[in-house]
């Protein structure tokens, strides 16, 4: 395994600010908007963005939640790894709201497909947008594209994109991992 640094802490910080500004551009005061982070890794990005929006851009009353998609995944009983559920924390209805789904890496698009199904249990939103920190351009299995993206990465199937946060890995960084033998 060799790894290449895609974003360091400074670059990641700039990207987060840009994403926050793009959200403000489209959602103004966020009165009709809810931010939903996909469990488990999307919630780190969600927390960072809400923190930025509240502390730096002074957006108050930001509604946000965490969505677990385990029970909606399409690889139940197909994957070799058993699926472990995380908690869902959405204490509001998303009826007629603008929803921004937030995840760290967009790859096949299947998680997002599951999340779209899961969201139906919380009402009928006005529309849903997708924000991802990394958009892996190749090997999409479904017609799903992000509305906001931090960085587009051309990675092939045996490569892996790993997002580290201070909260879970002690540093802010994004790496591209490669298998040497390939």
């Amino acid at each position: 395994m060799s790894q290449k640094l895609l974003l360091d802490a400074t670059a990641l910080n700039i990207t987060l600010h840009r994403l926050a500004c793009q959200l403000i551009e489209n959602h103004g005061d966020f009165k009709q908007t809810v931010l939903i982070g996909i469990q488990p890794r999307g919630t780190f990005l969600l927390n960072r963005l809400t923190q930025l929006l509240q502390d730096h851009y002074e957006i108050s009353d930001l509604l946000s939640g965490k969505l677990d998609i385990t029970f909606y995944r399409d690889d139940f009983r197909r994957s070799n790894e058993p699926l472990k559920a995380n908690s869902t924390e959405i204490n509001f209805l998303i009826e007629d709201k603008k929803v921004v789904l937030i995840d760290d890496v967009l790859y096949t698009g299947r998680s997002i497909r599951s999340a779209l199904t899961a969201l139906q249990s919380f009402g009928r939103p006005e529309h849903i947008e997708l924000l991802t920190l990394i958009d892996r351009r190749f090997s999409r299995h479904l017609p799903i594209q992000p509305d906001y993206k931090g960085r587009q990465v051309d990675a092939i199937d045996n490569q892996k994109v790993k997002v580290h946060w201070k909260e879970n890995a002690g540093e802010d960084a994004v790496y591209l991992l490669k298998n040497k033998e390939n």
Binding site: F71, Y72, T88, T117, A118, Q120, S121, F122, G123
Partner: peptide
């Protein structure tokens, strides 16, 4: 948590 949602059903 699921059975306390407005729609209490998952497709698993």
């Amino acid at each position: 948590e699921v059975i306390n949602r407005p729609i209490k059903k998952v497709p698993s």
